[in-house]
Every structure is written in structure tokens, then in C-alpha cells.
Design a protein around this nucleic acid. Structure first.
Lengths: 215, 215, 215, 215
DNA sequence: TATGAATGAGGGTTCATTCAT
DNA sequence: CATGAATGAACCCTCATTCAT
């Protein structure tokens, strides 16, 4: 009998959480296919059969992990009010959070892409991208209305492309073994982004970011 | 016993080619893991054992398919001399070919990413990206030397980012169900790219592309 | 996941033992190569997959069976104290046990020889022979020191040869369809052995063996 | 269509012989099961299909190889007339040839044992042993009739045992890594054999063997 | 005769899932 | 709730043998 999150004893809740955590780690390290249910159980310190007390299948566990990750990515990418004054600073702050959120979860996003082909996770992935696309499009539209960005650009398509630039960089950054640190990367992404949309006036130099989002 | 491409009778060559073609289709449609050797054989119209006459394993077939695809992508992305005069036109032509090459093979590139994690295909993927990165970096460097692009930009990192924009758009384009046609997409990608690197002077309007590379 | 002998429930232990027993029988009847994992499972009354709960491969099962058999052969060949007085009686008792141990397991020893060529079982076979060789050599050396056997004989090489006589007879005995019963065989082996090493005085007639080792 | 040895062109005969030779080498090096028909063909320098022009199956090739080997072993073990005078020298000469014949072919004899279980090669193996057993038994009987050996010994059983001693030593000689050279081995085998049958008088020292059989 | 492509039965192994305790 | 034994579908790969050319 599968046990939902509610209606669980404290012990049960702990076990369930251990499985989710173990699953997330395992998926992130080895990919969906390479992870066996046994691996997850071993990592969570429970026996093989216990898994099925909480999840009807490996896929459902993945779905839950993916949903949690997507939620975190949403939460982590909200630009705080600190950077609200300067458009360039806003873009920069957004890019920093964007890059961080996607870098930290690039493997899981990749798996979502894989899995999306065959299962019902497609929506989750689309929703994830949609949030970032919409945010980018809204931001651009606002700038256009304020006369700060090229009004000829289609906001949505532009956001897809420039957002894709950041997402893709997050994905290949480490793979390519480039020596760029986060600071350099965010600076350049932001400069390219700003100039691409015709943001005026372009700042003379990279402003020191000391906004609240910085860790 | 495995038979190399040379030293084959016409019949053998046909069979081998049928397997490669079948493999390419199958991988492209269902992904590496989902494809069973039997599927490939059925599609090629040969029996199970025949597969192993030509390939020692499924992985080797995939390697061959992937290598062929990468080769095609290289070949398909060479910008002809027709666009040589105008920098903007060159970028546009390159982007068009870039977009086409990656769109046409986006599934296989994804599979290469998957497979790269576990097998020796990592190099192939890196090499593929490297070619496009280097091309972009070289182009930018030339423009910088001619005083046509912002000299402050790191050519390689910039190429990675802007190239990633195109690659990622190629991957996501159809997935997102955007209504953009190729013309629109290339125009916008090029405009963003050109402006991002500070290409001067920016063209007033999108030039009609009638270059030789257009199909 | 493979389960070690310890940390097993009673049920698990029963299944494991059933597999070992079934494997031993099957190997003994048909030889290593001719035995399929399915055969062992069918004999043990378990499903195909269960096998791999306990053994990672067919080879490992064989290794365990072989180790057990070798252990039994060691145990079964220890000459009791009953025959300690008379050197000839000691040799006779040893030969009887030797012959029995090797006759009962001649097929498995043969398989060990086969398998030894390709796997890591060589050591087991060598160890098995070594024990018998050393025992024979030690016995001979003692007799030589007591002036009861020809001191010119190399103890080790002699033990290898005479031990080989017994081992080989055990192997060929039934194959050749000779009418000899165990009593006759042991008598003759012992007589030849004793005389070969120059044991003095040679007994006039075969002593009636009523030692404890006799069954 | 299978081609018999007769009714072959010179070319065909060469091919056939090449296959037999290749098969013998391959079997001797790797054992029956480990040898693939392909291996034999590659070694013989013919194509895969050609094999079946000459042999209906791998087993038949082995049968032919085995028969040839057994024939050679017969031929190689005939004691020449040179040693006819001295019984001890005769035994020694026989043992030397025995040891050589079986050492040189020990792997193939082992394979014959393996194969004997499942196919019709049992007879060949029995016949091979029978020849050596009979020779040994006849020799012993002659010595008994001449009053030179213990008349109480059953000639046939004794020959099986002592012959087994030599055969077995031939088999394990190299396996055990003993430092014994042929000379030492033959000396000791002969001394043991002679004394075991009560050959009188036992020679004081090992006679220098310079008989015709020595190579 | 010779070639080498094609065949397909057969075997070992994995692992998600079920179930009795 | 937890355990871990049992299941069996699925898959990859080998290789002796057949057959068209």
C-alpha cells in the first residue's frame, strides 16, 4: 500500500524524506537510468522493499525529485528589490541567479529533458522554462515601454534566445573546462544581454555588485 | 568476426549501410537506451546475428552514427564565400547554417550528451562544440581587429555564450511550440548576436538573404 | 544484490543451500560448460532471477562448490590414529581414504582442471594436490629417518608420482570398467607403494584392515 | 558437400591439411570449447565457409585431430630392440617414451577426456589407454614368467596403476612447477616401477641410457 | 572449390516490481 | 511499517552452421 505524505507517522515521514534525498543525490550523480532502486535504498539506509511503501515506482520518485528541484529553482531565481533602481543591475542580478540556479541543477534538468520524451514530465520542463522565459519577456517589455530597449524586438522570442544563452552556458560551463569564474561569466553574460536588447545607456564598466542576492 | 568498411562485397556494404541508416533513425527517434539491437535489425531487415557481423556492440554502432552526424554538421556549417563582404551578412549566414545543423540533429546531440557521461564519446561532443566555438571566436577576433566589434570582449567566452544561444535555441525551438519560422529566428539571433558584440554600424533593416547557402 | 551466507534469514539460507546442492549435482553430472544457470535453478526449484540474488555469476557458484568439495576431500583423507603402529597399515589406510576421496569427486576434480586453465581456480587445484603431496612426502621422510624406506628417494617427487598413481587410478577405475573392487584396489596400490619406496620388511600377505576408517 | 581425403585435388589436400594442423594447434593451446571455427580458419588462412567444405562440424575435425594424435602416441611409444637385454633398461626405455608421448600431448588427452563424456570419442580414449595398459601388462607377465617379478601381482591391474603413475606425472609435471628434468623423472619413475613389481635384482645405480630411443 | 554474408538458437545477466513474513 | 526473498521480462552477445555467389 502506497503511503501519501499526509497520514504518516513521524518515522514514516523521516523514511520518506530520506528516500527523496537519496534519490535526488543518486539521480544527480549518475542519471536516471543508471540509478537502481537498490542504490537509492542503500543510500537511504532502508531495505529494498520499503521503497515501494512510499513510491509506486522509480519514475514517481523521480517525478517528485524533479518537482522539488523545479520549485527550488523558481524560488532561487527571484530577484530581490535591492537591484530595482538600475536596469543593468537588475539584469545582472537576474543573470547571476539564473546562472546559479541552472548550474546547480544542470544534471537534473538534463534528465528531465531525457525523461520528458517518454513520460509525463514534459509539462514540468516546459513550465520551468516558461517561468524563466516569461520573466525575461516581461522585463524586456518593461524596458521597451520605458524606451530603454529596442522596441523592435519580439519580447518572448528574445527572452527565449537570451535565456537560452544563460541556460546553455550553465550547462557547458564546467564541461568545457573554461577557466571563467562566476563573476566573469555573469559580467559577460550581462553585457551581451544588455547590449543585445539595445539597453541604453550601456554602462561604462562593470558595476561592483553588492546587492543582497550576492553570497 | 567484425568486418571493416573496406574489404566488403557490394552486398556486405549494402547491409552495413542499412544498419547504420536504421541505427541512425532508431536512435534519433527513441534515444540510445530505448533502442534495442533487435529494433535496428528489424528496421534494416536483417537477422539478429547479422548485426554482430558488422558491429561488435550497440555502442560501436552509435559511435559510428554519431561520428557521421558530427561530420555532417561540420560540413553543413561552412559559410560560403558569397557572404564575405558584409560582416553582418556573414554572421547571418553562419547563424542560419548553425541553426539548421543543430536543429536537424538536436536529438542526436542530446544523446551524445547522455552517452558522453558514461562512455568515450565525450571527446566527440567536445570536439563538435569546439569547432563551432573556435569559428565564432575567430570571427569575433577578426572583427575586433578591424575595429568593428567591442575589443573588450573575450573572444572565446563570448563565442561560447552566443554560440550556446543558437545551439540552445535549435534544441528548444520546436519543443516550446513557438510559432517562429526559420527566417524570423535567424533574423533575431543575428540581430542579437551582432548587437551583443557591438558590431558597428548596425544595419537598419534585416537584409534580404539571397546568398548561396540559402536553400 | 548479492547476499552473503551470514545475514540471511532461514528461508534465504535454505534457498542458498538448495542452489549450492543443485549446482554441485549438475556440475558433477554434466560438467561446467554444459550446465546452464537455468538448469541449476530448475533443480533447486527457484526462478531464474533468484540465482543472482545469491551468486553474481555461474563461475562464482562453481568456485563455491569446488571449494566445498576440496574441503571435504581434505577432511575425508585424514588418517586416524588407529593405524599408527604399523607403517604398512598406515600407508594402506591413507591409500584407502585417498582413493575414496578422489573417486567420489573425480568429475569435479576434472572440472577444476578444465576451469583452472581459464579462471582463477588454478590455485585451488594446486592447493588440493599440494596437501596430498606434502602428506605423502612427510610420511616418506619419516620412514626414511626411521631407516624403513630407501633414503635415496626424493620425498617430494616420489610422493607426486605415487600419489599420482592413486589419483589417476581413482579417475580411471570406473571408466575402464575393471572388475576390481575397492578392497583389491587398495591392497594392490598399497603393495606397489610400499615396495616402491623400499618399505622393509614387506608384509607377507595383505593384512585384514579393520581400522576405524573403514566403512 | 563434404570432401573426403581421397578424391581431392592437390590444392584441396593442402587446404585440408592446413585445417587439421591449425585445428590441432588451436585445440592444444586453448581447449575444445574455447576454439571457434573462425580461429581455426584464420590460422589456416582460409575463409570461414571453406571449413565446411572439408568437415561437417567442429566435432569431426576434433575427432580427426584426436585420432592422429593417438596414432602418433602409439608410434612414438614402441620400445626399440636396443634395450631388449636388460629388463630394467627395457622398463626405463618404455617409461621415457611413455612420459614423452603423454607429456607432449597432455592437453589433447585431457580434451579427449572431456569430450569423451558427451560424444563418441570415448572409445578412442579407451583404446589409447588400453594399448599402454596391455603393453605394460604383457611386459609384467613376461617378467613374472621369467621369475623376475612378483608372480602375485595381477598384471593388468598393476599395469593400470603404474601406467597411471606415468601418465599422471606427465600431466602434472609442468603444472606443479617441479624442478625435475626428464632424466631425473624417468629415473625415479623407473626405479619406483621396478621396485613396485619386485624386479630383481634392483640395479645399484641408474644406468646411463644411451639406447637408440634417446634423442 | 572458395568465399563471406546471413542465420538464429542459446546463454548469461540486470533490475523493477511483488509478496509473504 | 519494514524486511528481504522471489520473480520474470527484457536485453546483449556468441558462434556453429547454412547458403547464395
Amino acid at each position: 500500500m502506497i503511503v501519501k505524505s499526509d497520514a504518516l507517522t513521524a518515522r514514516g515521514r523521516r523514511t520518506r524524506e530520506a528516500l527523496v534525498r537519496a534519490g535526488r543525490e543518486a539521480f544527480d550523480e549518475h542519471g536516471y537510468d543508471a540509478v537502481r532502486v537498490d542504490d537509492v535504498c542503500a543510500r537511504a539506509g532502508v531495505s529494498h522493499g520499503t521503497f515501494y511503501t512510499y513510491f509506486p515506482s522509480k519514475e514517481v520518485l523521480f517525478r517528485e525529485v524533479a518537482t522539488a528541484v523545479v520549485g527550488e529553482m523558481f524560488a532561487a531565481s527571484v530577484v530581490g528589490p535591492a537591484a530595482s533602481g538600475d536596469p543593468y543591475a537588475r539584469i545582472e542580478a537576474a543573470n547571476r541567479l539564473y546562472l546559479r540556479a541552472w548550474s546547480a541543477n544542470s544534471r537534473l534538468v538534463r534528465m528531465l529533458e531525457q525523461a520528458a520524451a517518454e513520460e509525463g514530465l514534459r509539462e514540468l520542463l516546459l513550465e520551468l522554462r516558461e517561468v524563466f522565459v516569461r520573466r525575461g519577456a516581461d522585463g524586456l517589455r518593461r524596458l521597451q515601454e520605458q524606451g530603454l530597449a529596442d522596441p523592435a524586438l519580439d519580447p518572448r522570442l528574445t527572452a527565449i534566445m537570451l535565456g537560452g544563452m544563460v541556460e546553455h552556458f550553465a550547462r557547458v560551463w564546467l564541461d568545457l573546462g573554461e577557466p571563467a569564474d562566476e563573476r566573469t561569466a555573469v559580467d559577460l553574460l550581462t553585457r551581451l544581454w544588455a547590449r543585445a536588447i539595445g539597453l541604453t545607456p550601456a554602462p561604462e564598466s562593470t558595476p561592483a555588485s553588492t546587492s543582497a542576492e550576492d553570497m
